[in-house]
Amino acid sequence: MASKQQQQQQGGQIDLAQLPIPQLRDLKSQLDAELTHLSTSFQSLRTAQSKFRDCITSLTSAFPAPPKSPSPPLLVPLTSSLYVPGKLTDREHVLVDVGTGYFVEKKIDDAKDFYERKVKDLGESLKDLEGVVEGKARNVRMVEEVMRVKVMSAQSAEAQAQGEGKSD
């Protein structure tokens, strides 16, 4: 994997030095767009992960570990400003949203397991995405570097040409 990435980068480097400035600029804006997109995805994955973590905490606080211990007092929201006291009749099952409008009845431990799995999966995706983002950022920096060199050399060439023009 690493060697492949390196190869790609080396290939990119060779190509970059030969590209004219407008194309480099296009490439940079394209890379920038990709980078922003990936960063937003990264952020939303983070949010999703913390939501699943919240679910685990809620499960732990609503259903304390020894199953026979009394249910903690509960207030059920009827509207956002009106609450009524409630009691859990079923202390063993919860309904879990598994996506696309399906809810599955699960035991508390299974539900926790489900959310932990989700958090783990998202963590893996986050790690993968982090690598991709880093690679893209590296590419952007590389393109910027080549662009700077090109622009500078073009400017100095221009200055030289002008200087020669004056001396004539």
Partner: peptide
């Protein structure tokens, strides 16, 4: 992606598990 995660979830579920489908605000057993 979402559907395949749901499918994976169904795969590890017991056959007699209670599944509800959300239709509007209502959950219907399926």
């Amino acid at each position: 992606q979402e559907n395949s995660t749901v499918k994976k979830e169904f795969d590890i579920l017991e056959d007699d598990a209670n599944i509800y489908k959300q239709i509007g605000p209502v959950l219907l057993k399926q």
